[in-house]
Design a protein around this nucleic acid. Structure first.
Ligand SMILES: NC(=O)c1ccc[n+]([C@@H]2O[C@H](COP(=O)([O-])OP(=O)(O)OC[C@H]3O[C@@H](n4cnc5c(N)ncnc54)[C@H](O)[C@@H]3O)[C@@H](O)[C@H]2O)c1
Ligand SMILES: NC(=O)c1ccc[n+]([C@@H]2O[C@H](COP(=O)([O-])OP(=O)(O)OC[C@H]3O[C@@H](n4cnc5c(N)ncnc54)[C@H](O)[C@@H]3O)[C@@H](O)[C@H]2O)c1
Lengths: 218, 218
DNA sequence: TTTTGCCTGTTATTTGCTTAACAATGTGCT
DNA sequence: AGCACATTGTTAAGCAAATAACAGGCAAAA
């Protein structure tokens, strides 16, 4: 399993960029391009060509000298690395403003990532469909997750329910959680967790605006 | 201006954590706590106490031995660092599903960060209020940004308009952009840019789920 | 009063990632 | 053919951040 093993050593940041390269490449392909240079990819993503080449080196993909990389090929290689063959089923947990926006947004974006269920506690939402996806009761979490083979959950419940909902998700056998709640959650080692807090990011931007202002005023 | 200067050297990650510490501390304060240990903060945030102490060292705040940190004090010190005294005015550019969710979410969360305007191209949205905030035409961008003294923009327009809208924002004098569009944008050096791509994050979680599955199957 | 233990604050080490440097190579031009 | 050069692929250096290691000190227990 040599091939599989070196995936493990890919830097997290490289994984992120591969996802981005692929989307950029698909657009290029649609535009009729067949080959692309590292500096072109770099330009689209606003990074350096060195970084692109380094990432591609890490996944063992080689381009042709003076012709660049074959777009079609490269898309396939990246897909083979980051996509699961069977596809990964996704649930949105908490069908509020953000949950619904995400549901609509993600649906149909990547065919290996299918949103197949929503969950909520609100009686009015339970049983309804949103963009063709059923909203289930949180009480049926375990059953539905098992039946629909859901592996990934996007957590968008109110912050005060983050912890308990995360626990339910883990107990139900979820393998990865994307937490958009401002409250950090804890998961066992075999569950992959990614957290993103918008208020933090907003405050960070505000801080650097403030700092820049002060620097100018000196 | 010694004080101001060392803010410049604070690691980006420390800034992010300060924002999070503060929110956690405010909750503790509400609960009647007056002092807190580094390991308690660490527990809430699911990080190590060393990291907490190191961050606090960097901002030059000292606790009391065996009593920990004075919560009220610490909140003030952090606020003094990351908050702008005048407050920073924010605009949401692109009042779609995500834009509206964010508008509602951010409003009133932090009183030094006020969302004061929305912008859109859709005639039906222009002139309407959402959560008490007016949605202006993108054609009035420069005027409104100037009049309301808006410094920070959250970009939530469709990806194909990211680039042109970013340019408009920069021209209008915006000092910081938070780009939630999947298309990377480019800004001059004096504009602070933060980008976040949800699909990338989702694919990353999916990748690690897949990898973990394969490791098990060996 | 001494000792133990708990907590802070600081310095040193390690890790992960980015950037720089450069060797290798085939293409087109002269 | 031979030279100039754009472009790839790899190794080395540099940076930022996290973690580890540890010194210092006070409070309570013995
Ligand atoms: N709206 C945003 O733009 C935004 C941005 C960043 C983060 N967030 C975070 O996302 C979360 C949701 O935000 P929102 O604006 O969509 O809030 P919301 O109130 O619109 O939605 C919350 C939804 O979760 C449901 N819910 C409540 N308790 C539940 C439980 N125990 N299990 C399952 N579902 C439950 C509610 O019925 C509701 O439908 C919050 O934690 C918020 O901090 C929101
Ligand atoms: N919805 C989500 O959950 C989500 C998540 C991540 C990223 N995004 C990104 O955020 C952006 C918006 O997503 P959405 O789901 O809200 O889409 P949407 O179509 O609901 O909203 C887009 C809004 O922008 C307005 N608009 C169009 N052109 C404009 C212009 N030139 N200037 C100003 N406004 C303009 C439209 O009238 C509409 O109101 C997209 O780039 C999307 O990729 C959305």
């Amino acid at each position: 399993m040599k091939i599989k093993n070196y995936y493990k050593n890919l830097p997290h940041k490289t994984i992120e960029r591969l996802s981005q390269y692929r989307r950029a490449l698909m657009i290029c392909l649609d535009n009729g391009k067949t080959h692309i240079f590292s500096h072109e990819i770099a330009n689209i993503q606003h990074i350096t060509s060195v970084q692109v080449r380094r990432d591609l080196m890490l996944i063992g993909y080689s381009g042709t000298l003076r012709k660049g990389y074959n777009i079609q090929d490269l898309i396939e290689v990246i897909s083979h690395i980051i996509d699961d063959e069977e596809g990964i089923k996704v649930a949105v947990v908490g069908m509020g403003n953000l949950g619904r926006a995400l549901m609509k947004y993600v649906r149909g974006k990547r065919h290996k990532l299918e949103v197949v269920a929503g969950f909520d506690t609100n009686e009015e939402k339970i049983g309804k469909e949103y963009k063709g996806v059923t909203c289930y009761s949180i009480d049926d979490l375990e059953k539905v997750i098992d039946e629909l083979n859901i592996k990934l959950a996007i957590l968008t419940v109110p912050a005060k329910y983050s912890t308990e909902t995360a626990e339910k998700l883990v107990d139900a056998g979820i393998k990865g959680i994307l937490n958009y709640t401002p409250k950090p959650i804890r998961v066992p080692e075999d569950v992959y967790l990614e957290e993103y807090d918008m208020i933090t990011t907003l405050e960070k931007v505000a801080f650097y605006i403030k700092m820049h202002q002060e620097k100018e005023g000196e």
